[in-house]
Design a protein around this nucleic acid. Structure first.
Length: 468
DNA sequence: CTATGGCACGGATT
DNA sequence: AATCCGTGCCATAG
């Protein structure tokens, strides 16, 4: 069950529990919506906060600035964690042409379908958008379409050619090649787009179009014979393909943080949590901000409370109701923030190496163990962690859940190992080398990780040395 | 015989 | 209670 954080948080009604849980689950964006809704309640009041005179941060409550007033002791293991109200918060789904956050944050948090749809929405008619949305929700994790065009056409009662047209639009937007049926199709689209900006070896196109089977089996001799060219030429073309193209369009998209480009990315996202160095100096302790999507603190409007007392009996009823709702919300919000604060504080201490030095240094951490430490139920941690995102000091935005990824360190070690290998190593070899580094994983698991990282099996890795 | 991918089971996560 | 993830076992391809 739920742990009582402080006596002031009673009454512990079911409503209270339910709402706290929901709030915990919510991301900043959702929280923003929720707060907007609650603010229609006249009993609730938003008080503007004062700013820290030195760093211009909005300050929660009446506390001194947690960053600037920090004692001089610079214990690296003592991160500054605080709730950071943001008047400039702007939820992605509502993004208009309003002001940008002062620290623009790369978008890439939204899911792939949304990302693509946002790019193409403008060039499509409303009815076409529906079809596009449908197509995009039927992609597999590699970005391939999982429903036949004909089926979609029948479903929407439109001509297949119309669906086909929309599909082509999708294929030509940012992760170029999404919405294809096969890697081959994706590659062809990519080649076509690439050709618009720079020369593409025609042999590469021919190979993808007519010799895909040989290509995927690395039978270059066959290819050379078929096209009557030298093997060296083939090697060149293959090199071009593996360096510039991606047979699995969706994978590249998730890998790195995408800088918001002027054309497609008017969408800025706030992560739920921002981690940075104090004064941007890596020598200093970490500063952890838990973003609150409002420029102040919520509290019960004292005037309203007063008015309730004097109101007529009839009006009293409704006002009492509003008052209760408001106070419940405020309490739950505090509860949520409190939990988030304790959670992230602990996580930052435990995973400091990961935050500072990168994926390789992540420590295995389970939600359950953290729950024990913080003396809350594991489902509480689970809710708090799910769907949240964190911005690291290097400006990358990652899901909070990645701090609990049991295999991330092994996967990076594996990537490095393969990147450095001289000769393609078999999965068994890799497993052995990993265990030497202290990562005890089964051979079978190495295979799984490999495919998760999009790395080909050893016997197919001969030519394709680098993976972009 | 070796290297991999598929399927299924058990524990962890949600 | 449903789902995900690491593993072991087995079939298949080279």
């Amino acid at each position: 069950m739920f742990q009582i954080q402080s006596p002031s948080l009673r009454p512990l009604t079911t409503a209270h529990l339910a709402q706290t849980m929901t709030l915990l689950n919510q991301t900043v964006g959702e929280l923003w919506e929720q707060i907007q809704k609650e603010l229609t309640n006249p009993a609730l009041e938003l008080i503007e906060e004062r700013r820290c005179p030195t760093c211009q941060r909005l300050l929660p409550g009446s506390s001194p600035c947690p960053v600037c007033s920090r004692p001089t002791s610079m214990d690296l293991n003592e991160p500054v964690v605080f709730i950071s109200p943001r008047e400039d918060f702007m939820p992605g789904s509502y993004s208009g042409e309003e002001t940008m956050p002062d620290e623009p944050i790369a978008a890439s948090v939204e899911d792939l379908p949304t990302y693509v749809l946002r790019q193409i929405a403008l060039e499509l008619e409303p009815d076409e958008r529906k079809i596009a949305a449908f197509l995009l929700t039927h992609l597999d994790e590699d970005g391939f379409l999982t429903v036949p065009i004909l089926e979609v056409a029948r479903y929407f009662h439109v001509l297949p050619s119309k669906v086909e047209k929309i599909k082509e639009v999708i294929q030509r937007t940012d992760p170029v090649g999404v919405g294809s049926y096969t890697p081959q199709e994706a590659l062809l689209v990519q080649l076509e787009i690439l050709a618009e900006v720079r020369p593409v070896p025609s042999l590469a196109v021919d190979i993808v179009r007519d010799a895909m089977d040989w290509l995927s089996h690395r039978q270059f001799a066959e290819i050379a014979r078929h096209f009557k060219v030298t093997q060296a030429k083939v090697q060149d073309a293959v090199k071009f393909i593996s360096e510039n193209l991606n047979p699995f369009p969706a994978r590249a998209h998730w890998g790195d943080v995408r800088q918001p480009s002027a054309k497609s990315g008017q969408v800025y996202y706030f992560p739920d949590i921002i981690i940075s160095y104090l004064n941007d100096n890596p020598e200093n302790p970490l500063v952890v901000e838990i973003i609150m999507p409002i420029g102040g603190t919520l509290r019960i409007n004292p005037l309203f409370r007063q008015a309730t007392r004097q109101a007529s009996d009839e009006a009293k009823e409704g006002m009492k109701n509003d008052l209760d709702r408001a106070s419940l919300f405020v309490k739950c919000l505090q509860q949520r923030n409190n939990t988030m604060q304790r959670l992230i504080q602990r996580v930052v201490v435990l995973q400091r190496e990961y935050i500072v030095y990168g994926e390789r240094y992540i420590k295995p951490l389970t939600r359950a163990s953290l729950a024990r430490e913080l003396e809350v139920h594991e489902s509480t941690i689970s809710r708090a962690v799910s769907n949240k995102t964190v911005q690291l000091p290097n400006k990358k935005i990652i899901p909070l859940s990645s701090f609990f990824d049991r295999s991330l360190n092994v996967r990076t070690a594996l990537r490095d190992l393969i990147a450095q290998e001289k000769e393609p190593l078999s999965d068994a070899d890799l497993a052995k080398m990993l265990s030497k580094q202290g990562y005890d994983v089964a051979r079978r698991t190495v295979a799984k990780y490999r495919s998760m990282e999009g790395i080909l099996p050893a016997h197919l890795r001969k030519v394709t040395q680098q993976t972009a």
